[in-house]
């Protein structure tokens, strides 16, 4: 079965991203497909490469990056949410005259249409938030 996942909250403040990650891992282990994880609202902060949590804490962004690499999961940060919150890839940074790319490996910035597309193309869409 194809699962799509929506994450509405940033890392550490809420458990949403942790729950979504555990769900994705469990789904993949059971042989399901996780086609895309869409990060919306403060959820886009899950994709920041500038996060340096204490070493004895879980590395939320790194966990997602590794999951994407291992299982070819598409991690999408909503562009409108990113623009409000200061998340930029090279293209966005250049377009808006801002500093550097702060999108972590395995994540990409794209439009809200990707969320609708996930709803259309996946068998189930599972939402995690506040």
């Amino acid at each position: 079965m194809k699962f799509g996942i929506l994450v509405n909250e940033g890392p550490y403040q809420h458990q949403a991203s942790d729950s979504a990650y555990q769900f994705a891992r469990a789904a993949l282990e059971k042989g399901h497909e996780v086609t895309r994880v869409f990060f919306y609202h403060d959820g886009v902060y899950n994709g920041t490469s500038y996060s340096v949590p204490p070493l004895d804490d879980r590395q939320v962004t790194k966990q997602w990056s590794e999951l994407a690499k291992e299982h070819d999961v598409d991690l999408v940060l909503c562009v409108a949410a990113c623009q409000r919150r200061g998340m930029m890839d090279d293209g966005e940074a250049e377009r808006h005259g801002k500093g550097a790319n702060n999108v972590a490996e395995g994540f990409r910035i794209s439009g809200l249409g990707q969320l609708i597309e996930t709803g259309i193309q996946s068998d189930r869409l599972v939402t995690f938030g506040d």
């Binding site: 919306y40 609202h41 409108a80 949410a81 439009g111 809200l112 249409g113 969320l115 609708i116 597309e117 709803g119 259309i120």
Partner: peptide, 15 residues
């Protein structure tokens, strides 16, 4: 607000 933004985008997908 951000839910309404999704709904406006969704309109283009003819669902």
């Amino acid at each position: 607000l951000e839910s309404l933004e999704v709904v406006l985008i969704a309109a283009a997908f003819e669902q």
